[in-house]
Amino acid sequence: MDWKPVTLSAAPLDQSWYEASARARLAGLLDADSFQEFIGPEQRMMSPHLPLFDLPRAFDDGMIVGQGLLEAQPVLAAAQEGRFMGGAFGEIHGAKLVGLLRAALHLKPAAVLILFDTGGVRLQEANAGETAIAEIMRAIAIARAAGIPVIGLIGGRAGCYGGGGLVAGTCSRLVISEGGRLSVSGPEVIETNRGAEEFDSRDRALVWRTMGGKHRRLLGAADAFVDDTIGAFRAAALAAIPAAPAFDLATLEAEQARLEARLDRFGDCTDATEIWGRLGVDDPTAVPGLTTEAFDALLDRLPEGPHHAR
């Protein structure tokens, strides 16, 4: 199966992660020509539900899974195609990721990489999608308990929302870019339920400083902030594997303690800039404009050190 996209002018590692297709991300992220797809498009494992709604299907149901090498280490990888139905989890889409995570127990890879790009569960097959989310979280917990790091990479146009946000919360480490957004309820969902005064989804600056990569990194919900290139995600994924925390009682208790402390400390804030100020950022309004280098330098200056618990 030749699944690699037609090469663009830029070197693959310099290409934008945000703009790339799921297949282009996998091609650049892993060692050249090392990716082998499981249940490829030629097997036509498509959604059984979408025809009921008279909607077009995709040969891979928007989820590409397989094995490859990352700097010669064997890894399993799953990539969501955010442009097909917003990267949403349906029955086949979810089952492919569950199967990959379960295969990890037998194949014992150096890590499982999940390239998130999703708005959450696919509404047309919501029950199957919700079940898939639960099965994926359970499979991640079992893989992590077996000592296999599960690394989430977030930088796609659909962000990582809904059930995808829950799944991301169970990963060992998360890498996020400026364009990546991580949350459960998305901007439009909040606005629909609570009104534009609660959250104006058309205010892009508000969306990014509430759910964007810099905020998630500052808050500790993501472990690394990277430039929007395939090469930057590759380097961060490599660094994340040895840094993955043990999945034991001590880690879980530390995460619980950190979440409680976060609520105590920031629960009354009405804007992300207030949180950044309390974290020790001198000029919170300047944060969205910082380059990755300047942002990393800022993180180093903050009183709070690196934290394994999210």
């Binding site: 199966m1 030749d2 699944w3 996209p5 037609v6 297709s21 297949r23 498009p41 030629e42 077009p56 299907r57 995709a58 040969f59 195609e81 442009r83 097909f84």
Partner: peptide, 20 residues
């Protein structure tokens, strides 16, 4: 001699093409 290939994505105004 390639047995199969795929290009494109199913999205609004787009399509995927599987060749065998």
């Amino acid at each position: 001699a390639k047995a199969s290939a795929i290009t494109g994505v199913v999205a609004s105004g787009n399509l995927e093409v599987l060749l065998e």
